[in-house]
Each structure stands twice: as structure tokens, then as C-alpha cells.
Write a protein that binds this DNA or RNA. Structure first.
Lengths: 172, 172
DNA sequence: ACAAACTTTCATTTTTTTTTGAAACTTTAA
DNA sequence: TTAAAGTTTCAAAAAAAAATGAAAGTTTGT
């Protein structure tokens, strides 16, 4: 029994660390990803106190990153009857999680980038080869990113089980 | 004519800055993304000297990031006849660029993460509800990430014009 | 209205990541 | 073989990002 508990703790820790590392490689702060990982594998809502304890982080850090996760719409606050403090749960449905992440990234990063691409690609150019190439390349990039963004939107529109449905579509 | 040149410089700069910012949000260092942006819009190969000059960065920084871009397979070294120094060009085909980036990210980040997910999800659990939930959730995550990774692989397999082909498949 | 219980904010500190620059290295041509 | 022209490396410095923690703010029960 003791050994078994140790193994669980070890596996849990490995998962949280790995998720944290993956997060930073994709531009998500480590703690934010770790909190998310922790909530993903918890079978019941977790208090801020417990998150701080498990990840050895400060109250401020926990609070800020929980707020960020809620802003992304992938972590929810919960209230337990008769309990003063707040508890947190993660969106556990992976299709839903992926949809929310992709929507947020599109809104926060892709859409603003598209706006700039549009701007710079419509620069009036009757000039040098360098200018012609610039306009040509940025126009192509605009079209590509726009198309990719739309495809992602279309794919995740199914919401329920979109990945499985995509697999079927592609295999055909 | 003077005004026109200024506008080009301005547009070019805006593009390079935006691409750099987008890069950091996705876990790619700013300078690396900026060098890539610069090469993407150059109609001819660029020397390290010119890159340093345009981006106001040191020789070491330029060298390291060019090496990284070449490791990703999205920037090439070129030699000009009768020139001692090296020149650099970016992969300008966007389909090809996206394929290479997705392949590298899969190899460097997704595959190792999958390995860990496999490990932790096969932890023997005959224990508590917490343990059962952990195994269940990590197993689901493993399946999901594996499937997504395979789909991406399949999509980019077409290489030539894969995005346009994907659009058609999905619309049907 | 008060105070206990809890959460949020943000200026400061710490950590991590990126950049620099000078020394070491490589290549080429005479 | 030498030196000039160029490139790479890596320890140290700088910059950027994240974390801390104490003060301010909020909510709830009496």
C-alpha cells in the first residue's frame, strides 16, 4: 500500500512537470500549465490552499494563474455547500478543451496578426523588385493564415467529438 | 519616391516586429522569428552582416539563431559565386514551411510528451478513486494527443497544397 | 456595522531566457 | 604556411518574464 501511494505521487508529479514544460515550449507560463495539469487529474475540486501546497507556489502566483486559466475558459470556480473558500476544476472534456484553446489563441494572436498582415500587404507598391516581392509574399501569408484560421474554426465547429470526425473525413 | 521608400521600410519593419511578437507568444525566440521574417520577405539571399545591421543584433546572436533556423529546416545557406561570405534564404513556400514546422514540433515536443503520457497512464492502479481518475484521464489524454498528432501527419502528407486540399475535404 | 475568512493586486525580488562580444576556430588564396 | 576573411562558441551581462508577499480589497455571518 505504501509503495503504491508512492508510485501514484511519482506519476502525478511527472505528469504535472511534463505538462508544465510543454506549456512553456508553447508560450504558456509553466505554473499556469502545471495548475491546469493538477486540476485535470483531480477527481474533485481543489482549493487554492491545496494548489499552493502541491506546487509549492505563493498565494499571489496561484491567484493570478487561476484567473488567467478562467479567462481562457478552461478552469471553473466552484463553491461547496457550507464552505467559505473557493474550489477550482478544469474542463476535463478534451474536445472542448482543444476548442477553447484554439478559439482563444485565434482571438488573441491570429486575428491581430491578420490585421497587420492586411495592412502591410496592401502597401502601395509600383517600385522595386524588393517591394514587389514584399507585397507578394505578405499577401500570400495573409491568405494562408486566413485560410488556416478558417479551417480550424470549421473543424472545431462540430465541438462534440470533432477530432474523431476529422479522422473519418480525412481517411475517406 | 522618397515617401514611397519610407513606407516600404515602415511596412517591412512592422511585419518583422509583428512576426517576432507572434513567435514569442508561441515559444519561439523573438530574434529567431524576426530573422525568419526578414528572410521571408527578401527577394534575394541576405548576408549575416546585413541581418545584424537590419535587426541591430550581435554577430553571436545572428549566428546562433541562423543555426537554429537551419536546424528547423526552414532557412538555407547559400553561396554566391566569387563571394567569400555566406548568404541565407528562407523557405518561401508556405505549405512547405508549415509542414516543416509541424514535423519539428511533433518530433521535439509532442513525441516526448506522448512517451511520458504512456508511462504515467500505465501506472498500475487498483487503488482509490483519485488513482482511477488519474489513470483514466491520462489515458484519454494519451489517446487524444496521439490521434491529433497522426491527423496532422496525415494532413501534411499531401505536402503540395495541403491546406487547400483540406479545405475541400472539410467543406464536403 | 464589524471582524473573520478569504482573495486580489502590484511593487519588488528572483529566476529564466536571451544577448553580447571576444577568443577560438575554419576556410581560402597567395 | 601564413594571414586575411569569415564563422562559431560560450562565459558573462542584460533583459524579460515569472514569482513573492504584504497590503488592500471583498464577502459573509452575526
Amino acid at each position: 500500500m505504501y509503495i503504491c501511494l508512492m508510485e501514484f505521487k511519482e506519476a502525478k508529479n511527472k505528469f504535472v512537470q511534463t505538462w508544465g514544460a510543454l506549456g512553456s515550449q508553447w508560450g504558456i507560463n509553466k505554473t499556469m500549465a502545471q495548475i491546469h495539469a493538477l486540476l485535470m487529474i483531480s477527481h474533485e475540486p481543489v482549493s487554492m490552499e491545496d494548489i499552493m501546497e502541491e506546487l509549492q507556489i505563493s498565494r499571489g502566483n496561484a491567484s493570478m494563474n487561476l484567473r488567467a486559466l478562467m479567462d481562457w475558459g478552461i478552469v471553473y470556480k466552484e463553491y461547496k455547500a457550507g464552505e467559505r473558500r473557493e474550489f477550482f476544476t478544469a474542463e476535463k472534456d478534451l474536445d472542448e478543451l482543444a476548442v477553447k484553446i484554439s478559439r482563444e489563441r485565434s482571438k488573441r494572436e491570429i486575428k491581430p496578426a491578420l490585421k497587420v498582415l492586411k495592412e502591410v500587404s496592401t502597401m502601395k507598391s509600383d517600385g522595386t523588385e524588393a517591394e514587389r516581392h514584399f507585397v507578394d509574399q505578405t499577401t500570400k501569408l495573409y491568405d494562408f493564415v486566413l485560410k488556416a484560421d478558417n479551417v480550424l474554426d470549421k473543424i472545431t465547429e462540430y465541438k462534440d467529438n470533432w477530432l474523431a470526425k476529422l479522422v473519418i473525413k480525412i481517411m475517406k
